[in-house]
Simulated assay, not measured.
Amino acid sequence: MAEALHIRLKFPFTSPSGERIEKLPIHRLKRKDIAEAQRHGKSDADVEDFLAAKMTGLTLEDLGELDIADSQTVTAVFRDVASGGDGSAAVGRGAVAGAADAAQ
Rank of each mutant, 00 (worst) to 15 (best):
A4H: 08
E3Q: 12
L51S: 08
G41D: 10
P12N: 10
L51W: 06
E22G: 15
D46Q: 15
A103H: 10
I7D: 02
L51N: 07
G18K: 02
L24M: 03
A90P: 08
I26K: 02
T14F: 01
D70R: 06
L63G: 10
K30N: 07
D33Q: 04
H6F: 12
K42A: 12
E61C: 02
R20I: 02
V47D: 04
A37Y: 11
A53R: 08
A102W: 00
A37L: 10
L63Y: 15
D49H: 13
A103Q: 04
V77I: 05
G92D: 06
E36G: 05
E3W: 01
D67K: 11
D86I: 10
Q72D: 14
V77K: 05
S88M: 09
S43V: 02
A97K: 09
K54V: 11
A45I: 14
L9H: 11
D70W: 06
Q72M: 13
A102I: 03
A4Q: 11
G84F: 07
R31I: 14
L51A: 06
I68G: 04
A99P: 01
D80S: 14
T59R: 04
A4M: 05
A89V: 12
K23F: 03
R20H: 10
F13N: 04
L58Q: 08
F50M: 03
V47G: 01
A102M: 02
E22F: 00
E19P: 00
D101G: 13
G87K: 11
A69Q: 12
H40G: 05
T56C: 13
K54A: 14
T73E: 03
G92R: 07
A100G: 02
F78M: 11
P25R: 14
L9Y: 09
F11M: 03
R8K: 15
A99F: 04
L9Q: 10
I68Y: 13
A103I: 04
A99G: 01
R93N: 09
G98A: 07
L9W: 09
A2V: 03
S88W: 13
D49I: 00
G18D: 06
A97R: 11
H40S: 15
A37C: 13
R20W: 01
A90W: 04
A95K: 12
A4N: 05
A69D: 12
A4L: 09
Q104H: 05
H27D: 08
L51Y: 07
V47M: 03
L58A: 09
A82L: 13
F11R: 15
L9P: 13
R20N: 05
